[in-house]
């Protein structure tokens, strides 16, 4: 391709960075507010030059309940992901390496379970949780997130497993390896990067899940999205602390998102774009 002229490259660079700046600005602004004092955070005109302070983070972390919510989030997202992969990996393996005639229908059916709008089953889920004592428990939220993300997990693992060349398996088979050994010693190591990205995507989705977190927990099992929502009360005008709490809540997940962005496209589009 011919090299574009210097003037044109400058224009493209400027346009690209301006657009990026606008998109990223709310996060940047929140990040700045997290290091301001409360007075600076609500000042108008806005304070741009200030001595960064860590007092908001100290205040947020000193409230023992922030860590309580944080660990609820960790338990729910990591737990639901581990359970989802444990259930989803064998299924994806079966569909990718030993597809029956119904394999495609099965995959499409799994996808279709994602189409149920959460609010359509809010009432029965709430009542089921109430009757079984699962309201406001980590177990309840964990299982729910597993069910919500299971179709995506199976699909994403399936698209990765499908790309493992089958000759490798044929060779192992001739050497007399049994299916289970193949699975453990060949497929899992080969698919490890795919399994890792799938896990990261499932963690991201569960971490950010807000609808069920807000409606099915009160305090004991409340994860971060529901906790952050409590900053919306009119008297809660603690913008700097809200920003610090938010920054801590989104930090690890945005980093995960950056790590997996390429593979994530596959998972989110059910393999249709890659």
């Amino acid at each position: 391709m011919p090299r574009p002229s210097a003037k044109r490259r400058l224009a493209i660079g400027l346009a690209g960075w301006s657009a990026t700046f606008v998109m990223f600005f709310p996060i940047l602004w929140m990040g700045l507010a997290a290091f301001k004092t409360e007075t600076q955070a609500i000042a108008s005109p806005p304070v741009l030059l200030f001595t960064p302070t860590l007092e908001n983070f100290e205040a947020v972390l000193a409230r023992a309940d922030y860590l309580h919510f944080f660990f609820n989030s960790v338990a729910v997202s990591v737990g639901s992901t581990a359970l989802g992969i444990l259930i989803g990996l064998p299924a994806a393996y079966a569909l990718a390496f030993h597809p029956g005639r119904r394999a495609k229908d099965l995959l499409v059916w799994m996808l279709s379970t994602k189409m149920m709008p959460a609010v359509g089953v809010l009432v029965p889920l709430y009542l089921l949780f109430r009757w079984t004592g699962l309201l406001d428990t980590i177990t309840g939220l964990l299982v729910l997130n597993t069910l919500i993300n299971l179709p995506i997990i199976v699909w994403m693992l399936f698209t990765f497993l499908r790309e493992i060349p089958k000759e490798i398996l044929e060779a192992a088979r001739i050497d007399g390896a049994r299916s289970f050994d193949q699975f453990v010693h060949l497929i899992i190591p080969l698919a490890a990067p795919g399994i890792a990205s799938t896990a990261l995507l499932a963690i991201i989705l569960a971490w950010n899940e807000a609808f069920w977190s807000i409606n099915l927990t009160a305090w004991r099992a409340t994860p971060l999205p529901a906790f952050i929502a409590s900053f919306s009360s009119p008297e809660g005008l603690f913008w700097a602390k809200m920003s610090a709490a938010s920054l801590l809540a989104i930090g690890p997940i945005v980093a995960f998102g950056w790590l997996t962005q390429k593979q994530l496209v596959r998972g989110l589009t059910f393999g249709a774009v890659k």
């Binding site: 999205p225 952050i228 995960f256």
Partner: peptide
Amino acid sequence: APFFVMPT
């Protein structure tokens, strides 16, 4: 990045 920020 905004896509990974939780809705609340």
